[in-house]
């Protein structure tokens, strides 16, 4: 039986909008599967423009951050763009504390992210 996807993926105007199914991105196996699915999305695109929507995410580990860094690098290697959207207080704090808010493009809302990823 096929494994259930860890992501919900919507395509609109050449932009890939990704939502997480899991609310807690902590487990190594879960993180590895999300990383594989995101890498597969990136590999299919010539110039990937991807929004990761964190509206469902309540907890995030350092391993998850590592996976996101790897995905961001892969997108950058193809001259694409990754934008993170809808990070609530605690999740935003994880990025601020680790100073990864300087390494990622982060928008408050999905609408802002759509505008940013088009630039």
């Amino acid at each position: 039986m096929a494994e259930t996807s860890m992501l919900q993926i919507f395509e609109q105007d050449g932009i890939t909008n990704v939502e997480f199914v899991e609310t807690n991105i902590l487990d190594e196996i879960c993180i590895s599967r999300i990383g594989d699915e995101l890498s597969s999305v990136v590999e299919r695109k010539a110039c990937p423009k991807v929004i990761l929507n964190f509206k469902n995410v309540h907890a995030l580990s350092s391993s998850a951050l590592g996976m996101l860094i790897t995905v961001n690098t892969k997108i950058g290697d193809k001259n694409g763009k990754l934008v993170l959207a809808s990070l609530d207080g605690p999740i935003r704090d994880v990025f601020r504390i680790t100073k990864l808010d300087k390494a990622f493009s982060i928008c408050d809302t999905l609408a802002d992210a759509m505008g940013s990823v088009r630039k």
Partner: peptide
């Protein structure tokens, strides 16, 4: 900042 690991203790 682009290293994929080494953030656990900092967090």
């Amino acid at each position: 900042l682009t290293l994929p690991s080494g953030r656990g203790l900092a967090m």
